Amino acid sequence: MPGTPRKKAAAAGPKKTAVKREPVQPDVLTKMLSIITASLEEDKAEDIVVVDLVGRANFADRMVVATGLADRQIAAMAHHIEKKLGEEGFNRVLVEGANGSDWVLLDAGDIVVHLFKPESRELYGLEKMWSADLDSSESEVAVGKGEEQG
């Protein structure tokens, strides 16, 4: 078969390895979640939503979505969450987009926090995408209905 081993590996793509996350203790998850939501409330975040991801995603157990009105407010909220989690011993918090963007992501391992400006939050609609409503068959949209009324 022509090609070097490196080219063959590149063509095959990344190895498929299923990584199982160990479930976090409920009290640890509750503590982290209370630190995050309290910090957001102190920083005047708007429309704070917590989405349960257990059994629906393997990257986290909870997702927190909140809105800030300005870049500086969003960056400050991210900094305060990171600092307060660190003070409680949760040091592995990764922050993306904190340098003045419409969307900042904090990955605290078991909890993922999304901080948006209002227009970006509406555009991406993450809490709608991950809500339990989409899992039920009642929320399915019938294709073709209502198009031929006239």
Rank of each mutant, 00 (worst) to 15 (best):
P2Y: 11
D27F: 08
V19C: 07
A45W: 04
A76L: 09
D27K: 10
D107K: 09
E46S: 13
A76V: 00
D43H: 09
E87V: 03
G144K: 07
R121N: 09
H80N: 09
E147S: 12
G13E: 11
V112R: 00
Y124V: 07
G55A: 05
V93L: 07
S137D: 05
V64D: 00
D43E: 12
S137V: 11
K15N: 03
I48D: 02
S136T: 14
G144I: 03
S131P: 09
G109K: 03
V50F: 04
E41Q: 10
E41Y: 10
S139L: 13
V141K: 07
A60S: 14
A98I: 05
P5E: 02
E140M: 14
H79E: 00
P2Q: 05
I81H: 00
K117I: 06
A10I: 08
S34A: 02
E22G: 04
E147Q: 11
E42Q: 04
A76S: 13
A12M: 13
Q73N: 03
K8N: 11
S131N: 10
N99P: 06
D71R: 06
G89Q: 08
V24P: 08
I36G: 02
G13Q: 07
K44R: 15
Y124F: 12
L40I: 11
D71S: 13
S34V: 01
R92K: 12
R72P: 02
M129F: 15
D71G: 00
S101V: 10
I35N: 02
A76R: 07
G3E: 15
A98W: 08
T67W: 10
V51E: 06
A70L: 13
N99W: 07
G97E: 09
E148P: 02
K83S: 01
T17L: 11
V19Q: 11
E140C: 11
L105V: 06
E138K: 15
D27E: 15
V28M: 08
H114F: 12
G100I: 05
T17M: 07
M129Q: 14
V113L: 10
D110A: 14
K128H: 15
K117M: 08
G100Q: 07
E46M: 07
K44G: 02
K16F: 15
E41I: 04
G109V: 03
L123A: 08
I35H: 02
V141D: 06
E22V: 14
M77A: 02
G97L: 03
K20G: 06
D133W: 12
K145E: 15
G125A: 10
E46K: 14
K117G: 08
L33I: 01
E127N: 02
A12K: 15
T67Y: 10
R56E: 14
H114A: 07
A76Y: 03
P26V: 01
G86E: 00
T37H: 06
V143H: 07
I35Q: 00
L85G: 05
K145T: 14
I35D: 00
E96V: 03
T67R: 12
G97Y: 00
A60Q: 14
S139G: 06
G55F: 09
A11T: 04
N91I: 05
D52L: 12
D107F: 13
D61M: 12
I36V: 06
K15M: 10
L69R: 15
A142V: 01
E138H: 12
L85Y: 06
D102W: 12
L69D: 05
L85P: 00
P23T: 13
S34Y: 00
F59G: 13
S39Y: 06
G89P: 09
V112Q: 00
L85M: 13
K44D: 04
S39N: 12
